[in-house]
Design a protein around this nucleic acid. Sequence first.
DNA 1: ACTATTCATCGGC
DNA 2: TTACGGCCGATGAATAGT
Length: 364
Amino acid sequence: METRVVFHIDFDYFYAQCEETRSPELKSKPVCVCVFSDRGGNSGAIATANYTARKYGVKSGIPISFAKKRLEERKDAVFLPVDFDFYSEISEKAMEIMKESADIFEYVGRDEAYLDVTKRVDGNFEKGFHLAQQIKNSIRDKIKLSCSIGISPNKLISKIASDFQKPDGLTLVSPDKAEVFLEQLKIRAIPGIGKKTEARFLEMNLETIQDLKNLDIFTLNKEFGRKTGTYIYNAVRGIDNEPVKEREASIQYSKISTLKKDSKDYQFLSENIRELCKEVHDVVKKNNRMFKSIGIHFVQSDLSSKSKSRMLKSPTSSIEELQKTADILLKEALENQTTTIRRLGVKVSELSEIQGQSDITSYF
DNA sequence: ACTATTCATCGGC
DNA sequence: TTACGGCCGATGAATAGT
C-alpha cells in the first residue's frame, strides 16, 4: 500500500476568531463567545474563548458566570452571544479554499477538515509542507483567519499533530518520525481518550503513549471492549488506515433548549416538545429530508441525561407524526420520572432524501 | 454463532 | 467552593433475523 499524505486542518479558537474578524478591536481583549439560555442573567455556557481569555482559565464548556468571575479583573473582557449563521458563512468560504487543494476532502465540522493530498504532492512530504503553508496564507489573506495544520501519513497522526502546536501551527510528522513524535506525548493526546480513560490509565501508573505500548491487545480489549481496545493498541503505534472520505451531510437533526423552569409536569413539557418539533421540522423541510427515527432527550436538574427514541414503520416528513411520536415518548418517559428536567430536546435521524417533488406538502 | 438493527448513554467541540 | 449550551457522532448492550 502506498504512503498517503494527509492534512488535518483546524481553525484556531474558531467562533471567537470569527468575532475578531468582524470587530478587529476585540483582538487585544479577552473574548468569550457565550450560549445564553432562556433563563436570563448569566445562565449558559462558554462555546469558545480567545487565547487572552484562556490565560485566565476560561475555556469552552464552563458556565458563563464562572468565566465572568475569572475575568473580573479584566474590565475590557467581552461576552458575546453565539452567531452560528455568521460562523457558518465564514466556515464555508474557508472550506472552499481548502477543497481546491485536496484530492479528497472530508468535512468534519465548522472548524475542522481532513485533506488527502497524496496525488497533489506526489507523495512527497516536503511538497506537502509547502502546500500547507500556501493554504494557511490563502486563508489568512482572504478570510483573515488563522489555523493549525497537522501533516502525516494518516488521519490519526495528523489530528494529533494539528493539536501539537497552536494557534497558527504547522506540524509535519513524516512516516519515519511518527514513533518518536508519539512516544513523548501524554496519553490524553490520542483522540477519543478523554478525562475518564486518562484517569484509568493514570491509576495504572501509565502517563505517556510510550508507557501504553507495554499493554498487550488482549488486556486492552478486555478493559475497553474490542473496538476501543484495538483502536488504542493501534493508535499508540501510529497505525490508522481510515481513509479520508467525502462525508455525507449530517445524519441527524436535533434541537435542545433549556426550559424556563425545571419541571416534570406533562402539560408544560408537552408544549415545549411541540415547539422543538416545529423547529426540527423546519430544518428537515429546508433540507428536503424524510426521517425514520424520532427521539427525545432530557437533561435533568442534576445535569445527568436521559433519552428515548423510536423507529417508525416507514420514513416520513410529516410534522404531525413527529409531534405525535415525540409526545408519546414524553408520556412514556415521565411515567417513572422522579427528578425534574432542566433541558429538553428533540431529534430525528435515519434520514433519507425526498426525490424531486416540486410541492411535497400535498403528499403524506 | 454471527450479523444487522434498535436504543440509550457518553463525550468532543 | 458552586456556577452549566446546543449541537453532533461513536459506542456498546439488547434484541431480532439468518
